[in-house]
Simulated assay, not measured.
Amino acid sequence: MLFWFRSDLRLHDQPALRAACTSGARYVVPVYCHADYDEPTPWGFTRVGHHRRAVLAAALRDVDGQL
Rank of each mutant, 00 (worst) to 15 (best):
M1I: 04
M1S: 08
M1F: 04
M1T: 06
M1A: 07
M1E: 04
L2D: 07
L2G: 05
F3Y: 09
F3W: 05
W4F: 08
W4G: 05
W4K: 10
R6P: 00
R6H: 11
S7H: 08
D8F: 03
L9V: 05
L9K: 04
L9G: 01
R10V: 04
L11N: 02
L11P: 00
H12A: 07
H12M: 04
D13M: 01
D13R: 10
A16P: 01
A16N: 07
A16R: 06
A16Y: 03
R18F: 03
R18Y: 04
A19Q: 09
A19N: 08
A19I: 02
A20I: 00
A20C: 07
A20G: 02
A20D: 01
C21K: 07
T22Y: 03
T22Q: 09
S23K: 08
S23L: 01
S23Y: 03
G24V: 08
G24D: 07
A25D: 13
A25T: 00
R26L: 13
Y27C: 11
Y27K: 15
Y27E: 14
Y27Q: 15
Y27D: 10
V28W: 00
V28I: 12
V29F: 10
V29K: 13
V29M: 14
P30K: 02
V31E: 13
V31Y: 15
Y32W: 15
Y32Q: 07
C33H: 15
H34I: 00
H34P: 00
H34A: 11
A35R: 15
A35M: 07
D36Y: 08
D38K: 09
D38Y: 05
E39T: 06
E39H: 05
E39L: 06
E39Y: 01
P40Q: 04
P40H: 02
P40T: 02
T41R: 07
T41V: 03
P42E: 00
P42C: 02
W43D: 07
W43M: 05
W43F: 04
G44F: 05
G44M: 04
G44L: 03
G44H: 10
F45K: 15
F45G: 06
T46H: 12
T46E: 10
R47I: 08
V48Q: 14
V48M: 12
V48H: 13
G49E: 08
G49Q: 10
G49C: 10
G49D: 15
G49M: 09
H50W: 10
H50D: 13
H50L: 11
H50N: 12
H51F: 12
H51Y: 11
R52E: 14
R52C: 13
R52W: 11
R53S: 10
R53Y: 09
R53H: 15
A54K: 14
A54I: 07
A54S: 12
A54N: 13
V55L: 10
V55T: 12
V55Q: 15
V55C: 11
V55A: 14
L56S: 02
L56C: 05
A57E: 13
A57M: 06
A57D: 14
A58N: 12
A58P: 00
L60M: 10
L60S: 01
R61F: 05
R61W: 06
D62F: 09
D62N: 12
D62E: 14
D64S: 14
G65S: 13
Q66H: 13
Q66P: 03
L67A: 12
L67W: 15
